[in-house]
């Protein structure tokens, strides 16, 4: 066999390995989703969405859980978006590049891989106990914000890095101040990327269970939250609770709740893709 043939063979081998790897990921996900839908779809109904939780599986609804999820997500967004994007802008545009900044950079990346339950313990110690917020929505949202801040900071920095320096030069050379260049040129050009990062981070937050259990999300909340200082539960906690019950009916409830949670996540990711495409079409060089 000559060299060209060997190369062609290698080419083919890698191609099939790639197909195999992709199929594994997609098939497993499809089986999982199919199974959940098969189990839960029968239970999905308007009543299921608007009923309060109950100790009887057939009367139980997820009203308080998804309301709690919405409250938590709104506050997590309000807290983490400005902080994360602000930190990203500072590190990329203002911070001097030296040993201290690269130390900081490595540690922010490390923070993204700290187990979420550790953040839960931190939230319990700082927000719930020290700052006496109790097991409230605010404490939960602050804890989740800490959890996803590193992801938002890193993706903001990546998005800003992708803005060509020629645009910055052009703006600076016309006498723009640093902030004017950031506000008029860098942020509009990188906003699609920043938004994608933020929404992907929020999609992670929406599925988190462990830190919220530690912070004190309750399993049984007989009312929907009225203010950020109310007690709460969220969908993943409700699901976790139902799955751990022995009765078959509760497991079916859990499957139905998973469908709702997946639905919310898909919608959020859809929004992310929409905005990314919209901004990328506008920004082409």
């Amino acid at each position: 066999m000559n060299r060209a043939k060997i190369n062609r063979l290698k080419d083919k081998a890698f191609k099939y390995f790639g197909i195999f790897a992709s199929v594994i990921g997609i098939v497993i996900l499809a089986i999982f989703i199919g199974f959940v839908i098969y189990m839960g779809i029968q239970r999905l109904s308007w009543d299921f969405m608007v009923e309060l939780p109950s100790r009887f599986a057939e009367n139980s609804g997820i009203y308080t859980a998804w309301m709690g999820t919405v409250w938590i997500m709104v506050f997590t967004t309000l807290i983490s978006f400005p902080l994360g994007v602000g930190a990203g802008i500072y590190l990329e545009e203002y911070g001097k590049k030296n040993r201290w900044s690269s130390f900081l950079e490595i540690n922010i990346s490390n923070l993204a891989s700290v187990p979420s339950i550790i953040y839960g313990l931190l939230g319990l110690g700082v927000f719930v106990r020290m700052m006496q917020m109790g097991n409230s929505i605010l404490a939960g949202a602050l804890t989740l914000s800490l959890l996803i801040l590193p992801i938002i900071i890193v993706s903001t920095r990546e998005a800003i890095k992708a803005v060509p320096s020629s645009i910055r030069d052009a703006s600076n050379a016309l006498g723009a101040s640093k902030w004017q260049t950031i506000w008029h040129q860098v942020l509009p050009a990188s906003f699609g990327g920043i938004l994608t990062g933020v929404i992907l981070a929020l999609s992670r937050a929406i599925g988190e269970t462990a830190p919220l259990i530690v912070v004190g999300a309750l399993v049984y909340v007989p009312f929907a939250p009225q203010s950020p200082l109310d007690e709460f539960t969220v969908l993943p906690v409700q699901i976790y609770n139902w799955v751990s019950r022995p009765q078959e009916e509760f497991v079916i409830n859990a499957a139905a709740a998973i469908i709702v949670l997946l639905g919310i996540t898909f919608i959020m990711n859809g929004i992310a893709v929409y905005f990314r495409n919209k901004w990328q079409n506008k920004m082409q060089w």
């Binding site: 020629s166 645009i167 030069d169 052009a170 703006s171 016309l174 040129q185 920004m283 060089w285």
Partner: peptide, 12 residues
């Protein structure tokens, strides 16, 4: 002191 660069760099 205005400047023109090597690669045309209009804003989008």
């Amino acid at each position: 002191v205005g400047m023109v660069f090597q690669k045309p760099n209009p804003f989008p």
